[in-house]
Design a protein around this nucleic acid. Structure first.
Lengths: 339, 339
DNA sequence: TTGAAAGCGGTACCAG
DNA sequence: CTGGTACCGCTTTCAA
């Protein structure tokens, strides 16, 4: 079933059918109705590939995401949900391509073969060759997260530095003096993963500002790693009374580790950080934390991207989010010495 | 940059370039090299839309998933990850389209406009009009989950009925007599959501088989709902000593509710069920549960789908998974009376 | 208000 | 081994 067939049955030309559909040229009421009737009868829908070829646009947006060999974190997945939903609202589909290993191949396929009209990049590194590449080509794109030098690109990001800083302040205000910081994995940190890096920077800056002491730890993205991390913290720095974490996937293990060590939250140990609401509320006591507004970030990413696509001449915008810290039940004053 | 330009610069015809690329016709070594050199110089990549139009296939698979207004469950998201990854391994991209509200529109767009070569459906209802529709059209598709009458369709599913049954048996073997079942939301259950329905069936069958008593509860997908649900259980059936849950998103709240009521797990209350490993290990004590092998199911779905696409004449296959229950720390014998 | 026809960028058949 | 060309299905310009 194609447009020619519809035209034949309606007794008009193909172009008239096309115009009746697009409305880009006036079509008399009676022919329009006749055409519409045939279309309904036949259940005709125009072929997307043909349309894309003729129009030069696919009405699809690309989403490039990490190799993620084993498992995705909640956050990554939530972004995807937000992006797909927001794109749908604008009548765009989302095309996902992992193509892991090869850094380029992933979006070379999406962009090079013109499968999509624009791209969203996640899991940004401070030095990210993909971003450089895209910036050079002029292809519309947006990053969730930002590089070390994001000028001239469109991005949406969480202000990890200041969020972590606020967490430290919060603990400082409560009277804590010795803190630990639970970061993402060693591997991610080393590879210049931006949120891990900026979170760490925030921790260090905050220590200086407040005069507190503290140490940063890296931790893999699972419960077992969280347990190990706590053990490490407790054994190497028994004086720690407050923990700041940006590793939500290890949160459950972190709590368990503390429980196993006989440390009650928040009586013996305060815990705070950045985490999706889902995780913050799943643990007991619920975590005082800044939320990852993943859905909203997805929405913003789409808005920025559509803007790039529609008005490429305008300078790229960005948005840095600093959600407030939601007080729940996991922080309190440090235990009184000798008690 | 298109194939004509490459042909011109290499001094050959367009068809020769095409054949050099596809290998579907012998091309002399020297012309092949010449062509390849030009392609490399120009950074040429064939246009996907044009290719799709000419070949009649898009090399993209569709993923239709629920409106999911607010948030997706972990499980849904994990499926997506698994599917995308598996598809990538076969050189297919995955096109996602939510198009919420309208039940049909979602895949009418993907299928009707031939944006994809095959479709994966999730969030299946026992009576699912989308499945009927697709079955009629003969378009290749696979469901994650199955309808009440899945004959002749390709699907991969978890055997909720038997998994829940095993959970009940496990508690029965430990000596429990009074159980509660925590299902997904009332709304999902009513709408014929298959896993909710089949899980409930399993619970009822198991009670009959074992002679235990028990009641089923519905629960929304969040921690707060989990807390409420526990309160309800404890007040309406104080004799309950074992809980079976298939609602992982409420798990944290369920644990908290028990803690607040002064019930220790597993001393005063055993808890078991079906849950992604991530959640099962996040709670303390870790949950004895059957895992949702989401990644694997995604992989299987892709395999089945490609099979449908390549050999539509062969009868549709399916796969029913019954992962074993992983013993962790949340179940034990019931408290001794009067102790 | 409508029709004819030239693309869009590939693929693959028919000839040579 | 290679070239010419019809065609995939739709959009849009040109002409009437």
């Amino acid at each position: 079933m194609n447009i020619g067939e519809i035209a034949r049955r309606a007794g008009v030309s193909r172009s008239t059918v096309s115009y009746a559909l697009s409305g880009k040229r006036p079509v008399s009421e009676k022919t329009r109705r006749r055409i519409q009737r045939v279309i309904n009868e036949m259940g005709y829908q125009p072929n997307a590939s043909a349309r894309a070829l003729a129009r030069g646009e696919t009405r699809a947006l690309g989403m490039v995401f990490p190799p993620a060999s084993s498992h995705y974190t909640d956050m990554q997945l939530a972004f995807i949900g937000g992006v797909v939903e927001a794109a749908g609202a604008h009548d765009y589909d989302v095309l996902m391509s992992p193509r892991g290993a090869d850094v380029d191949a992933s979006f070379q396929r999406l962009v090079g073969e013109r499968r999509v009209d624009g791209v969203i990049l996640m899991e940004i590194r401070l030095q990210d060759p993909r971003v450089e590449r895209l910036r050079d080509t002029g292809f519309p794109f947006v990053t969730i997260g930002r590089t070390g030098n994001p000028e001239g690109t469109a991005w949406v990001d969480l202000d990890y530095l200041n969020l972590v800083r606020r967490c430290v302040r919060h603990l400082s205000d409560l009277g804590h003096h010795h803190l630990a910081f639970v970061n993402r994995s060693e591997k991610l940190l080393r590879s210049g993963y931006e949120s891990a890096r900026r979170g760490l920077d925030g921790f260090e800056v905050a220590l200086q500002e407040t005069g507190l002491t503290g140490t940063a730890y890296t931790c893999d993205d699972d419960a077992a790693a969280g347990e190990r991390c706590v053990q490490q913290i407790l054994s190497s720095q028994p004086e720690v009374t407050g923990i700041v974490t940006i590793n939500e996937a290890s949160l459950g293990g972190l709590y368990r580790g503390l429980a196993d060590a006989g440390r009650k939250i928040p009586r013996d140990m305060s815990v705070t950080g950045i985490s999706a609401e889902r995780w913050a509320e799943a643990v007991t006591p619920a975590l005082t934390a800044a939320a990852q507004p993943a859905l909203e970030m997805g929405r913003i990413a789409i808005d920025l991207l559509l803007e790039r696509m529609r008005t490429p001449e305008k300078p790229a915008r960005h948005q840095l989010l600093t959600p407030r810290i939601v007080l729940r039940a996991s922080t309190g004053p440090p235990p009184v010495l000798g008690e």
